[in-house]
Nucleic acid binder design. Sequence first.
DNA 1: ACTGTACCACTACACATGAAGTGGTGCCAA
DNA 2: TTGGCACCACTTCATGTGTAGTGGTACAGT
Lengths: 189, 189
Amino acid sequence: MRQNPERRAALLDAAIEVLAAQGARGLTFRAVDQQAGVPVGTASNYFASRDALLVQAGERVFTKLDPNAAPAPADLPRTREGVDRAMRAMVERITAYPSGYLAVLELRLESTRRPQLREVLTGQVRGHFQKDLDLHREAGMPGDEQAMTLLYLALAGLIVERLTLPGFIGPDAVDPLVTALVDRIVPAE
Amino acid sequence: MRQNPERRAALLDAAIEVLAAQGARGLTFRAVDQQAGVPVGTASNYFASRDALLVQAGERVFTKLDPNAAPAPADLPRTREGVDRAMRAMVERITAYPSGYLAVLELRLESTRRPQLREVLTGQVRGHFQKDLDLHREAGMPGDEQAMTLLYLALAGLIVERLTLPGFIGPDAVDPLVTALVDRIVPAE
DNA sequence: ACTGTACCACTACACATGAAGTGGTGCCAA
DNA sequence: TTGGCACCACTTCATGTGTAGTGGTACAGT
């Protein structure tokens, strides 16, 4: 088993791209090798099995999607308007990097068949959501936990819609929908 | 090309199960044959190509998911409470038939790579949503189009969450979330 | 009642694709 | 010089598509 961490990370990033482009079933050692531009057999040397590759890709994609997730809270007003701006930024950020979220969706579906992967994903989602919740509360933003859960679900739905059938909800409809959502979900201050 | 309509329908139903169980990439003629319990080669005789199979499965799954979609409006109060009941029933109905919605999710992701499939799915989603909208309005239920769109997105998000990572949002949390959602989205009467 | 036709279920096969795993070679650094 | 790593060649295997072909059956024309 090879150890080089940069190379391993590069392979995982390639795996994420493959997931988005070809689906979970298309995630093979060779496809990863090709995407990463390394010789055939490399991925096979870094991951014991396809399962391991899948799980590690699942771990990585969240660390790539989320860390920048909290760029805002600091200089944002602690009002509904502030929440609105944060949410719009989040939707913008995620839809601007489709591969990442599409890979997550593929992994979610694949986790239907792989208990181990499901464990990992559930832990990741729970953890990141909890962190966002804590940040939100510590920043003194309006909206209780239930409100944030509802926002999370609706935005997730919106993002899925935008990424998979962009013709249904057009690009111009996004911001108004997010604003309307926040207006209705987050209590007036 | 074979014509027997019952057999074709049975093959498409089998295709939906395969989609849910094995993903879009697992949808092969042979897998469909096996799932439907018919001899190898049958599906190949009924569909000109894998593409055609995918598209026709995409058409069918919506007709199977939706028609029962409007069992309620008649005897439901034209109030927020009525909307709440309708929405809870809908979530219940969809999560009770996981294969159907999981197949839709697989198709959505696959449509990322297949323009023709994307066209079909976009049309189906748009059409069914519009129909629901019309029924809702004609029944005199509270909530304008934007409110219904927000409800749709949030419930879609909730369903995805329930079907793919059931450990994150537990089964007992569903009804309260739906009720809270409707309370916040649909204006008080 | 007989025969021919059309359709269909089922079978078999030819061809292609793509992947996994293994073993080996050369290189570089400790 | 020894160990770890990148790279490569080759074998083996599994799976799927598309199509051709076979036998059976229902139906219609005569």
